[in-house]
């Protein structure tokens, strides 16, 4: 039958999600003098030693790798803030705490390239991992609540990478329920049922709806 959606066409790869995250703005402290950069993606600088400046993450990482700056870890990447988030995350089993949309990718890039710029890097990292685990567990248990009556799902504060991971499961589940619950489908089943197919075919479908 026509219309099977191609799963590969509409999926972002993890590196594509990271690519998008690399445009997030971070603060750097350069140790060199450099003219302003008038780039396609925006104008940044001029840069002076020890004067903080705001640049996209990819630019910050490029400068950092060449030893030209230190990156200031974002406000939310501190032990204190993350401990609060983790506690709140554990206390509310059905809600996600507000975190930057790209918190997973940003923290990964900073850990990979600017580890020495993060205070308590080890602790911060394990806190972020814990937060990820708790949140993902919620996503998984959230999937169980989808039923034939679900026509929309609201996922306040879910992050980009989390969306990307859960997308195939979520879309296929919703689609399967939508397809089998549509009036057309049920009518069709009734019609064919009254004509030739045995009645047993109708049983389970009815049960599903009444639930």
């Amino acid at each position: 039958m026509a219309g099977q959606s191609d799963p590969h066409l509409s999926l972002f790869s993890p590196s594509e999600v990271e690519f998008v995250a690399e445009d997030e703005i971070v603060e750097i402290v350069p140790n060199i003098r450099m003219e302003a950069l008038n780039m396609i993606c925006g104008d940044f600088g001029p840069f002076f030693p020890q004067i903080p400046s705001k640049v996209p993450l990819w630019l910050a990482v490029a400068l950092k790798r060449r030893g030209k700056c230190t990156i200031r870890a974002p406000e939310w990447m501190t032990v204190e803030r993350l401990t609060q988030v983790l506690d709140a995350e554990r206390e509310s089993p059905r809600e996600f705490q507000p975190l930057p949309f790209h918190y997973i990718e940003i923290s990964k890039l900073l850990f990979d390239h600017a580890r020495d710029d993060i205070t308590d890097a080890y602790l911060v990292r394990s806190l972020i991992e814990d937060i990820r685990d708790v949140r993902f567990h919620k996503v998984e248990s959230g999937l169980e609540t989808i039923s034939g009556r679900t026509h929309a799902v609201k996922l306040k504060n879910l992050s980009a990478m989390e969306v990307n991971i859960v997308r195939p499961f979520m879309v296929r589940t919703l689609q399967a329920f939508y397809k089998h619950d549509s009036p057309q489908m049920i009518q069709q089943a009734d019609n064919t049922g009254s004509r030739s197919t045995p009645v047993t075919d109708r049983g389970p479908r009815r049960d599903l709806r009444r639930r």
């Binding site: 450099m34 780039m39 630019l59």
Partner: peptide
């Protein structure tokens, strides 16, 4: 400066992608 050139090159590559 090579550094400046390489930064612009990255900007170009990202847009091209």
């Amino acid at each position: 400066d090579d550094l400046v050139v390489s930064l612009y090159q990255m900007d170009l590559d990202r847009t091209l992608f």
